[in-house]
Computed example of a mutant assay.
Amino acid sequence: MFIYENQNIAQQRTPDTVAPLIYTKPPITSRFSYFLKLWSLKIVERAGFAVIRTLKPAPKGIRPSFLKTYPCRPHLRNRVFIPQSRKPWEQLPAYLDLHAGGHALYNAQFDDEFCATLANKLNILVISIEYSRAPRSRFPGPTNDVVAISQAIIEDGDLPIDKSRIVLGGFNAGGNLALSAAQFPELKDKICGIVCWYPVTDFALSASAKQSSRPYRNKQDLDDFKDWAPLWKWAYIQPGHDIRDPLLSVRYAKAENLPRWIYMIGAQYDMLAEEARETIFDIARLDEQERKQGLDGFEKGTYRWRLVKDVRHAFANNVTSGRSKETEAIDRMRTEQMLNSVGEWLLKGPLGASRSDS
C-alpha cells in the first residue's frame, strides 16, 4: 500500500522563506457544531441525489461504460467512460477526473454528465476516480487513494489507454487533489498535465481573508459556503499537521514538482478565485506586469488561466438548486464554452504530445 511520507516534498516550499503553520484542534463546542453541520449536509445531499435519480434516472448517454475497482482500493468504484466513436483497436489518451465536494461531499457519480460529454467530445478515455471522504478519511488519505488508483489505471492492460498521454483533472477539492497527487514521484513522470476547475489551493487563508479578496463582496452574497472554511479544515486536516504542506495547500507547490501543462479555471463570483489565480501566477513565474495584465486570463507557454465571467462556484457541475433559469442558462453556456477551450488546449497540448514532449 502506498503511504504518504511528509519529507522531501514538504520541505520544498514557494517561497522558501514561508514558515510552517501548524493546525490546532478547534474547541470542543466548535467541533461538535462542525460534526452536526457536516453530517446533516451529507444526509441531505445523499438523500436528495437518491430521490432525483429515482424520479429522473440518468439518461443512457451519460452513464459510464462500466465500473471498475482495483485491489489497492477494493472499496472504491471508479467510473469508466469509453467514447462512442472509439475503434476497437484504438489506444486512447486518458483524462482522470476527480469530483468536487470539499473533500467531504458527493461521489464520482456526480460528474457523469461532464465525463461522458468530455469523452465523446474529444474521443478520449475518461475515468472518474472515487476517493475516500472526510471526516472519516482525512489528509493524506484521499491523496493516497488518487495516487494508488491512478497508478492502477495506468498499468491496467484491460483498458484502451495510451500511457504516454494522461491528464489529471478536478473540480474544487478534486482540483486540489490533482495538484497534490501529481507531485508524487510515482505519478510525476506519468501525468502530462492538469486541469483545475475552481480549486481550493490554500488552507492557510482564513474565511475572512478569502472573503475580503472578492471584488464583488459589496454586492449580493454569491458564495454558498462562504463561512464554512473552518469546517472544511476540521473535517480534512489532522491536528498538528502543517497547513502549508505543499501536498495539502498546493499554493506552496513548486513548478518543478508539477506537470509542465496546467490549465487553471476560476469563477468570477467565487471567493476561491483569487487563491487559484495566485497559484497559477506563481507556477508560471509571471512578473508584476504580467500579473496585472493576466487577472482575467493569460497563456504563457504551457500554462493557462481563465476567469469565467458571470458565474458562481460549481457552475460546471450542474449544481443549480435554488438558482434561476437565467442563471442555469448562463452556467450551461459558460460550461460549453470552457469545455471547448479545455478540449482545444488538451488536444494541442498534453494529450496531443508524447511523454517526451511534456
Rank of each mutant, 00 (worst) to 15 (best):
L187Y: 11
L168T: 07
I82C: 09
E256Y: 14
P71R: 14
A10Q: 11
K121G: 07
A229P: 03
Q109I: 15
L168V: 12
A134R: 03
R31N: 06
W261K: 08
V146H: 02
A229C: 08
P71Q: 11
N123A: 01
S341R: 10
A50W: 06
E45M: 10
T335N: 07
R244I: 07
S65P: 02
V146S: 04
I154D: 10
I28H: 08
H241G: 02
L36F: 12
S132D: 01
W228F: 14
A229Q: 13
R312I: 04
G102N: 08
G174W: 12
I237H: 06
P74S: 04
I127C: 14
T201L: 00
Y23M: 06
K309E: 13
A178F: 05
L159Q: 07
A329T: 09
A182L: 01
D202W: 09
L125T: 04
Q7D: 14
K42P: 00
E275A: 04
G352D: 06
Q211Y: 13
R355K: 09
F225P: 00
T117D: 08
Q84T: 07
R277E: 10
R312N: 08
I149P: 12
A204N: 05
F315P: 04
V146L: 03
R291L: 00
N218E: 13
L122K: 04
S164T: 14
E288G: 01
H75W: 04
R244Y: 08
D223M: 03
A100P: 10
T201Q: 00
S128V: 08
S358T: 14
Q238E: 13
L98V: 04
I283Q: 15
T327N: 06
Y252W: 06
D16A: 05
L76N: 05
G294E: 13
L339F: 15
I166F: 14
R86F: 05
A50K: 15
G294L: 12
Q151K: 14
S213P: 02
V342G: 06
E130S: 08
A316K: 01
Q289G: 03
P230E: 09
E299T: 15
Q337L: 11
P64A: 14
P64L: 06
D97F: 13
E344G: 01
W228R: 13
I166K: 15
A119P: 01
K188V: 05
Q220N: 02
D189Y: 15
G297R: 03
H241F: 05
M338Q: 12
I28S: 10
K226L: 07
S324C: 02
P350W: 13
S356N: 11
F81I: 12
P71Y: 13
V308K: 12
N218D: 13
G48T: 11
F184P: 00
V195P: 07
P215I: 05
D242H: 04
N218K: 09
R133W: 00
F66T: 10
N78Q: 06
L55N: 08
K348A: 09
L351Q: 02
T29Q: 10
E130K: 06
R79K: 12
P160R: 11
K348S: 12
C115F: 09
S85W: 00
A178T: 05
L96G: 11
E344H: 10
I262L: 15
E278K: 03
R277W: 09
Y236V: 01
D16G: 00
T29W: 15
R46C: 04
D227Q: 12
